[in-house]
Simulated scan of single mutants.
Amino acid sequence: MNKTIALAMASCLIGAPALAQTTLRVVTAFPQGTMQNIPLTAFVEHVNETCTDSVTLNFVGGPEAIPTFELGEAVRRGVVDVGFSSQSFYTSIVPDASAIRLSTNSAAEQRENGGWELLNRIHNERMNAYYLARTSDGIPFHLYLTEEADPLDLSGVSLRIAPVYRAFFEDLGATVVQIPPAEVYPALERGVVQGVGWTSLGLFDQGWDQHIRYRVDPGFYVSDSNILVNLDRWNGLDAAAQDCLSEAALWVEGQDHVLLDLQAEELQRQADAGVQVIALDGERRDEFLRRASDAGWAELERLQPEYVTELRELLAPESAE
């Protein structure tokens, strides 16, 4: 190659602009340092390692940046680009999303049978959000109590709730109090509530184990921690960024075995800390789970019936039969 041409080409390469890279701001609904954020941390690291030519994620913070129950609206309005939140924190915007907790099949199966596509469309319509990924699949909720009680009759018991189990706990006779996770400890300490609904993970993260004495088995529903992207921001990304984020979404959904392993350790840790199990068996167990499912679907039917039948067929086919 002619030396002059070679020098000219090198000069062009040096002066050429780098490939466009978009930075997206990320906020979690969960307090920092809690186990619920493990999938998000992995997702952010994975994207920033594999999508270097197209998109990078900038973690802004948790509820100290955007309060837990306000994050859904912040995503809708584009105040933040990416939110990591459970549907229980944004059901006021997307009531239909509560069907996620009633799922009896996996996130992978929902991608195969059209369930993910329907949920994405619903999030598009109601929240101006792209439903990128669902994590924490397979992690159930539990009822935790400070005092022993009959799980099938909670009359006189005040429970901290999020919208995810409001209808169910009310059906069991409990008085319900909705407060964000960061305010649960003082509520337990002062006796404002005598129990909480929470997943099998994270009891120790915020010190709740200092007051909780009982866990009701079986667990009910399934938890979800969803990665949501403001739809306008998503549509403004180039194809390379969208493709890389979509691939990362599939990757992080395939990492839920990490939480399942931690769940076994967490339940053993609860036992070691003296948390006793109130185990429901036989007909009482069946009644507990049936009432959970019936209350959840009835509430969704009342709040937003538009997609209930389709959601039930795709997310919980057994219950639709």
Score class of each variant (00 low, 15 high):
109 E>L: 05
109 E>F: 02
111 R>I: 05
117 E>F: 07
117 E>H: 06
117 E>M: 11
119 L>P: 04
120 N>S: 12
120 N>C: 10
120 N>E: 10
120 N>F: 10
121 R>S: 13
122 I>D: 03
122 I>H: 03
123 H>P: 02
124 N>K: 08
125 E>Q: 14
127 M>L: 12
127 M>D: 05
128 N>T: 05
128 N>G: 04
129 A>Q: 01
131 Y>A: 08
131 Y>K: 02
135 T>F: 06
136 S>L: 10
136 S>R: 13
139 I>Y: 00
140 P>L: 11
141 F>N: 14
142 H>P: 00
142 H>S: 09
142 H>V: 07
143 L>N: 06
143 L>Q: 09
144 Y>F: 13
144 Y>N: 09
145 L>F: 01
145 L>H: 03
145 L>W: 04
145 L>G: 02
146 T>Q: 13
147 E>P: 06
148 E>M: 08
149 A>M: 08
150 D>R: 06
153 D>I: 05
153 D>H: 09
154 L>S: 07
154 L>W: 00
155 S>T: 15
156 G>T: 07
158 S>D: 12
158 S>A: 15
159 L>A: 01
159 L>D: 10
160 R>E: 15
162 A>Y: 11
163 P>D: 14
163 P>S: 14
164 V>H: 13
164 V>W: 07
164 V>P: 09
166 R>S: 11
167 A>L: 02
167 A>H: 08
168 F>E: 03
168 F>T: 00
170 E>P: 01
170 E>L: 08
171 D>K: 13
171 D>F: 08
172 L>H: 04
172 L>Q: 13
173 G>I: 06
173 G>V: 03
177 V>G: 08
178 Q>L: 10
178 Q>D: 14
178 Q>A: 12
179 I>W: 05
179 I>K: 12
180 P>K: 06
182 A>E: 15
183 E>V: 06
183 E>P: 00
185 Y>K: 14
185 Y>A: 13
185 Y>I: 10
186 P>N: 09
187 A>K: 04
